[in-house]
């Protein structure tokens, strides 16, 4: 089937591509409540929350691992519940409380989960850490005394390639103890 076939890729109509690239992007004015701060923005309506946080609000603590809703890296809290910012449109989120990793500490005082993650080496490369910290915070707010299997269940949507998860589980348990 491969023998000496000659054809071209990208024979899409060039004019059509011009139009696509130049199309009028619909922009919307939004007010988002991020980390307790009301922020007014003018953004293309198709941009995801992940993109708006990182590119329009300089909140680069929210990371991306797949942008397809598969890895949990971009987790933020919406009204306290973990959600994947790569699958959310900001236009849906006006009037909702959005929390990113930048909103986890109280000023310069780290959240007990952040302290425990630092103390126990639960962050190695640190790239999945913001999403996991936020998911863990939501868990502890709902269930202050989670069993280890409940922590596993709550964080199972967040992949980490460095730690083998062990120190993360220990850190969530340590923070839960201290929060009680």
């Amino acid at each position: 089937m491969y023998a000496n076939a000659v054809f071209t890729l990208s024979n899409k109509d060039v004019n059509q591509l011009h139009r696509e690239a130049l199309r009028d992007v619909e922009r919307v004015v939004l007010t988002l409540d991020v980390n307790g701060e009301a922020r007014q923005l003018l953004v293309p309506s198709h941009k995801t929350l992940l993109e708006v946080l990182r590119e329009d609000m300089q909140l680069t603590g929210t990371k991306h691992g797949c942008e397809l809703g598969e890895c949990g890296t971009c987790t933020v809290l919406i009204d306290g519940k973990p959600q994947l910012s790569c699958l959310l449109l900001p236009i849906q989120l006006q009037g909702r409380a959005i929390t990113t990793i930048e909103g986890m500490a109280n000023g310069s005082d780290l959240h007990p989960l952040q302290v425990a993650f630092a103390e126990l080496g639960a962050a190695q490369c640190g790239y999945c850490t913001p999403g996991i910290l936020l998911a863990a915070r939501s868990l502890l707010e709902e269930n202050p005394r989670p069993a280890r299997d409940e922590i596993r269940e709550a964080l199972a949507g967040n992949l980490c390639r460095c730690t083998g998860y062990t120190k993360i589980l220990q850190a969530v348990e340590l923070a839960a103890d201290r929060l009680r």
């Binding site: 990182r54 909140l59 680069t60 603590g61 929210t62 990371k63 991306h64 990113t100 990793i101 930048e102 986890m104 500490a105 780290l110 952040q114 993650f117 630092a118 103390e119 080496g121 962050a123 190695q124 490369c125 640190g126 790239y127 850490t129 913001p130 910290l133």
Partner: peptide, 18 residues
């Protein structure tokens, strides 16, 4: 703790795409 732990747990470490 790792010397870069605070930057990692606060989202302040700057990765290339940041």
């Amino acid at each position: 703790p790792k010397v870069d732990a605070a930057a990692k747990v606060t989202g302040r470490a700057l990765y290339a795409d940041d």
